[in-house]
């Protein structure tokens, strides 16, 4: 009898415990979501502020109690932004530098990765290790001398100076070599027996198989061109040769230090838009590429 009572009591306790557990579980779920949404708002807020500010008039922007949505939408800010900083030229330069350097860089990377992955030659491993070693050195160390070198070459203020010094990326070669190594060597030997040339084999077999890596490299390289600041700032002297980031920073502040914030925000939105579009469509490749590279640009 008392045994039975004990058992029922025990069961009741268990039920109570599990009910309490359910409550804590629901509470912690809610807290988790609340936290994650709060972070999402913090992450998104600058973008929201950029867009609504870019559509306000300067007077509305300066109100001491800010409006969370523009009273009157001023698309004209975007036109003004485009004219004030000569964004058309900046866009053109950035696209030319980005596309040309990406294409050339891909060719160099594919050829080098192929040599390191498929061909046997003396000193291959030592050379590869030495190349990887240079990745530890901060880029600023190279910049000091490269700045003198391009000056000596007479490359200042040309597209060449913006493209050539950064064509070789050891990291991309490394990434692609790893990818190439996964392709069975038998395929290459079979192709050799059939008399296929290396270039044809690369083009027909290796490149299609390594396409995801190549797409990641392309995107990272393009983003790099879009975001590069220091080198273009050093080597471009005329407004006609500037890249987008260089032209952007000071274009909307007048001599007295007053900044036309709405127009400035419109320019920032224009510059950010292409990156977002690329991200929207190629999210998978970007995130995969980034998780393996760990470098920005």
């Amino acid at each position: 009898m008392s045994d039975k009572l004990n058992v029922t009591l025990h069961e009741k306790d268990l039920k109570k415990v599990s009910a309490a557990q359910k409550v804590t579980k629901a509470a912690s779920k809610t807290l988790t979501y609340a936290f994650l949404f709060l972070i999402a708002i913090i992450v998104l807020f600058p973008f929201y502020w950029m867009i609504i500010s870019s559509l306000k008039s300067l007077d509305e922007y300066k109100l001491s109690v800010p409006t969370l949505f523009p009273r009157e939408i001023l698309w004209h800010n975007y036109v003004e932004a485009f004219d004030a900083a000569n964004l058309g030229t900046l866009f053109k330069n950035t696209v030319i530098v980005g596309v040309v350097s990406t294409l050339l860089s891909l060719v160099i990377t594919v050829l080098s990765a192929f040599a390191f992955a498929r061909l046997e030659f003396k000193g291959k491993n030592a050379l590869f290790a030495a190349l990887l070693g240079t990745m530890m050195i901060p880029g600023e160390l190279f910049t000091i001398t490269n700045y003198q070198t391009v000056n000596e070459f007479g490359w200042m203020d040309t597209y060449t100076v913006l493209i050539v010094p950064f064509l070789v990326s050891i990291f991309y070669i490394y990434l692609l070599r790893q990818n190439f190594l996964q392709i069975p060597n038998e395929l290459y030997l079979a192709a050799k027996v059939d008399g296929t040339s290396d270039i044809k084999y690369l083009w027909k077999v290796m490149i299609p198989l390594a396409l995801p890596t190549l797409i990641s490299i392309t995107i990272l390289k393009m983003m790099g061109a879009w975001n590069s600041y220091m080198w273009p700032n050093l080597v471009t002297k005329s407004a006609e040769m500037e890249l987008i980031t260089n032209g952007l920073r000071n274009a909307y502040t007048d001599a007295s230090g007053d900044t036309n914030f709405p127009v400035q925000m419109a320019a920032v939105a224009i510059v950010s838009a292409p990156l977002f579009l690329v991200f929207l469509f190629l999210r998978k490749y970007i995130m995969k590429g980034v998780s393996r590279s760990g470098i920005k640009g």
Binding site: V43, Y229, L248, Q264, M265, S272, F276, V278, R283, K296
Partner: peptide, 23 residues
């Protein structure tokens, strides 16, 4: 949410710095 959190990565650090400066 992960996609949202990734957005700051695909930005130009000078450009968005200007937004923070404005804020």
């Amino acid at each position: 949410l992960q996609t949202i959190y990734f957005l700051p990565y695909v930005t130009n650090s000078i450009a968005i710095g200007m937004v923070f400066a404005a804020m």
